[in-house]
Simulated scan of single mutants.
Amino acid sequence: MKEQTEDFNVQNNPLNYSTGIPTCNQQDYCTPQIDILEDQSNVYYVCELPGVEPESLNVELTTESIFIQGELGAVIEENQKRADFVYQERAKGGFFREISLPVNVDVERAEANFKRGLLEISLPKVNNY
């Protein structure tokens, strides 16, 4: 998580909605896969987002949950635009995920990067002793 090739701003994108309702009511809705890892000092979220443009991604943090919203696009080459699908497995469409945080974290010190279709978020734990 230390190597960051492209900084990603973990702020609310004003073009997106924090409720997710407009996206969830659409027919083309998908659920990206998320891994959650933990060590002694941090909680890490790794989310697969193939075809998502960083400017269309909305990530919000609270002290209780993490919210991720965006649009998985269909990656089609220019010469394939005139073709019809015979079979399709890749997900496309809007998505919305809200996941509870497993422990207390310092959302002000959160770090994120987005590269090669993976959103990686690191959240430092707060010691409450």
Rank of each mutant, 00 (worst) to 15 (best):
Q69W: 04
V59Q: 03
A74D: 02
S100C: 12
E48M: 13
T63L: 14
Q26G: 05
P22N: 09
L37C: 09
E3Y: 04
P14A: 10
V126G: 01
D28S: 12
L101F: 07
Y29K: 15
S100R: 10
E98F: 03
E78S: 09
P124T: 15
D28Q: 13
I76V: 11
Y29G: 08
M1E: 03
Q80D: 03
E48D: 12
S65V: 08
V105H: 03
S56N: 09
N104V: 13
L123I: 12
C24N: 05
F67Y: 09
T23Q: 09
E64C: 07
L37H: 05
L49M: 05
S100N: 05
E78Q: 06
P32E: 02
V43R: 00
L72F: 05
E98L: 13
E6I: 15
P102F: 07
N113L: 14
T19P: 06
E64A: 10
N13E: 09
F8D: 01
C47A: 09
P50Y: 01
Y29R: 15
Y129L: 14
I99P: 02
Q69V: 03
V105R: 07
I21V: 15
D28E: 10
L123W: 03
L123T: 08
I121E: 00
E38G: 01
N79C: 08
A83T: 08
N13K: 12
T23A: 12
K2L: 15
G70I: 15
P14I: 15
S41M: 13
E60C: 13
A91C: 04
I76Q: 07
E89S: 04
N79G: 02
D84I: 05
F67Q: 07
G73Y: 01
I36C: 04
E108M: 13
N58T: 09
V86P: 00
D106N: 13
G51D: 01
D35G: 08
Q40H: 11
L119V: 03
E111S: 15
D35Q: 13
Q33V: 13
